[in-house]
């Protein structure tokens, strides 16, 4: 009987990375009618877990995607299943608005810690940050709460002897290679891989696959969900001024003088 490698991939449904959201109020973003998709770093984590499974017929690799979110988050779980993830779990945080209550990284980490301590997990692979709130801390917090090793911002990953993981991280001015023993939390960076497209056939089949459903409040009574952070203000980035094309160097010099830049 070969060794097991049970991978948990926490994923988040976020506003599509290519969209420019607008503000609803000084503390809220207008998300109505906008497209949501999987957090791109999480997509990389999903891909890596699938690649590990393919690369290691010597191990019994199982992959499990999990998300906390409204029922609409099932869409991203379906895609994970279609890509080849073995199991998917939705922890519903549905509120009246339909978009779900917002959870801080520490709360997410607490919920995931509960999940890990219930089931059996050898490796957590997750995005280094979610592109909506850009906290970049959930992975570190889970590792802290579980007292596991962690390797963040990973751009290369391999399993050694079924017991260790060797990772490459891009650090300031170079690369760093680390070897760590399982269990471990890994957060992914962009260079790790390029996520695959979903095959149409698999997407159709994934529609019929079950998604495990849990409820944030009822199934995780031990987690205190009260927020500790308060959003004071959100601002739109400054708009870039439109450039001009000039026809000659003389014109450029005249313009620069006009704007008192020379």
């Amino acid at each position: 009987m070969s060794r097991q490698l049970r991978i948990l991939v926490p994923v988040k449904r976020v506003l599509d990375s290519q969209l420019k959201p607008r503000l609803l109020s000084s503390t809220q973003i207008d998300t109505a009618n906008l497209k949501f998709s999987i957090n791109p770093f999480d997509d990389i984590a999903i891909e890596e877990s699938l690649l590990l499974k393919k690369r290691h017929p010597d191990l019994q690799v199982s992959t499990h995607a999990i998300t906390i979110g409204p029922s609409k988050s099932q869409d991203i779980l379906r895609n994970c299943l279609a890509k080849g993830i073995d199991k998917a779990t939705l922890i519903s945080n549905e509120d009246k608005g339909g978009d779900g209550v917002t959870l801080e990284p520490l709360k997410v980490a607490h919920v995931l810690k509960e999940v890990v301590s219930k089931g059996e997990v050898d490796l957590i692979i997750m995005g280094k940050q979610a592109i909506d709130d850009d906290f970049n801390m959930t992975g570190q917090m889970i590792a802290g709460l579980l007292n596991w090793s962690q390797a963040t911002n990973v751009t290369k990953l391999e399993i050694v002897d079924g017991t260790h993981v060797r990772v490459v991280r891009e650090v300031d001015g170079g690369k760093e290679t680390l070897l760590a023993k399982l269990p471990l939390v890994i957060t992914t960076d962009l260079g790790l891989n390029t996520p695959r497209y979903v095959k149409l056939q698999s997407l159709m089949k994934a529609k019929k696959k079950p998604i495990e459903k849990l409820d944030l409040i009822n199934d995780f009574p031990q987690v205190d969900l009260q927020p500790r952070l308060k959003i004071v203000e959100v601002e739109e980035p400054e708009t870039k001024k439109q450039g001009v094309i000039l026809n000659s160097v003389d014109e450029l010099i005249a313009k620069l003088k006009e704007s008192k830049l020379v």
């Binding site: 599509d16 095959k199 149409l200």
Partner: peptide
């Protein structure tokens, strides 16, 4: 797909795709 008119396919999951 059922009518075997297409042999393979994918559908964009986000704006980048």
């Amino acid at each position: 797909m059922e009518s075997e008119l297409i042999v393979d396919g994918t559908i964009a999951q986000d704006e980048t795709e």
